[in-house]
Simulated scan of single mutants.
Amino acid sequence: MNFRKIWVPVGLAVLLFAAHQTYGWPGVAAVGGGIVMWLLLHFNRLMSVVRKASQQPIGYVASAVMLNAKLRPGVNMMHVVAMTRSLGKQMSPKGEQPEIFRWTDGSHSHVDCTFDHGRLASWELYRPKQDDAPAPAVEHTPTP
């Protein structure tokens, strides 16, 4: 069970109660204003991330290798979308846990990220195989 969904509202209610007990209604107004400001800051960041992600193709990242290096377990989905500036392409069925999203770069390397209840659980980098044979040389014939 996700305790953050329970403890954050309970903590805010306790904070409001303590403000009322200490300073009365002016304390509730001050703490309530602080809570509203905190919520607006989070909402503003969410909208900024979504606006930047809407300007990129779904599932695209500039470099899958760099994304692989920057990922850390436990970060939330919004943090990963902010890093990639793109929404991931969903590879798992909708509504099932864990969710798997893919980000691909221009060299066809891709990172598959597994999110468990909105938190990054694991990720895997796939890189296409490089041919060991050198590229064929282009022969130029001199023009007469």
Results as ranks from 00 to 15, higher is better:
Val36Cys: 13
Val49Ala: 00
Ala82Trp: 02
Gln56Arg: 04
Ser63Phe: 11
Pro144Phe: 12
His117Lys: 12
Leu46Gly: 13
Leu39His: 14
Val80Gly: 03
Ile35Glu: 15
Ile35His: 13
Asp131Met: 06
Leu125Tyr: 03
Val31Asn: 04
Val81Met: 06
Ile35Met: 15
Val111Pro: 11
Ile58Arg: 03
Val61Asn: 04
Tyr60Cys: 00
Val31Tyr: 05
Lys5His: 12
Trp123Ile: 03
Leu16His: 07
Met1Pro: 04
Ala53Leu: 05
Ser107Glu: 15
Tyr23Ala: 12
Ala13Met: 13
Lys94Trp: 05
Met37Cys: 14
Gly11Val: 05
Ala18Ser: 08
Asn76Pro: 01
Pro134Asn: 14
Ala64Thr: 07
Val75Thr: 04
Trp103Gln: 00
Leu46Ile: 08
Ala53Trp: 07
Ser86Thr: 09
Ser63Arg: 03
Leu40Val: 07
Met1Ile: 06
Thr22Phe: 06
Gly95Phe: 08
Ala29Tyr: 10
Ser122Pro: 02
Leu39Lys: 12
Ala82Asp: 13
Phe43Ser: 02
Lys89Ile: 00
Gln97Asp: 12
Tyr23Gln: 12
Met37Lys: 11
Glu124Arg: 09
Val50Tyr: 14
Pro26Phe: 06
His20Tyr: 15
Tyr23Ser: 09
Phe43Asp: 12
Pro134Leu: 14
Val14Arg: 02
Ser92Cys: 01
Ser122Val: 07
Trp103Asn: 02
Met83Asn: 04
Trp25Ile: 14
Ser48Gln: 15
Arg85Asn: 09
Arg72Ser: 06
Gly32Tyr: 13
Pro73Asp: 01
Ala30Phe: 11
His108Ile: 06
Met66Arg: 15
Met78Ala: 07
Trp103His: 05
Arg72Ile: 00
Val10Glu: 00
Val81Gln: 01
Ala133Glu: 15
Phe3Thr: 13
Gly34Ser: 08
Met66Cys: 10
His117Gln: 15
Val75Lys: 04
Ala121Met: 07
Ser122Tyr: 10
Thr104Cys: 09
Phe17Tyr: 05
Gly88His: 04
Val61Ile: 07
Gly95Pro: 08
Arg72Ala: 10
Ile6Trp: 11
Ala13Asn: 04
Leu15Pro: 05
Asp132Phe: 09
Lys94Cys: 01
Thr141Tyr: 08
Pro93Glu: 08
Gln21Asp: 07
Arg127Asp: 13
Gly27Ala: 11
Leu87Val: 11
Ile35Arg: 10
Val65Tyr: 07
Ala69Cys: 08
Pro144Ser: 13
Pro57Ser: 03
Val61Gln: 02
Pro136Ile: 03
Ala53Val: 07
Val138Asp: 12
Val10Gly: 02
Val81Leu: 03
Asn76Gly: 09
Arg85Gln: 14
Val61Met: 02
Glu99Ala: 09
Leu87His: 11
Asn76Glu: 08
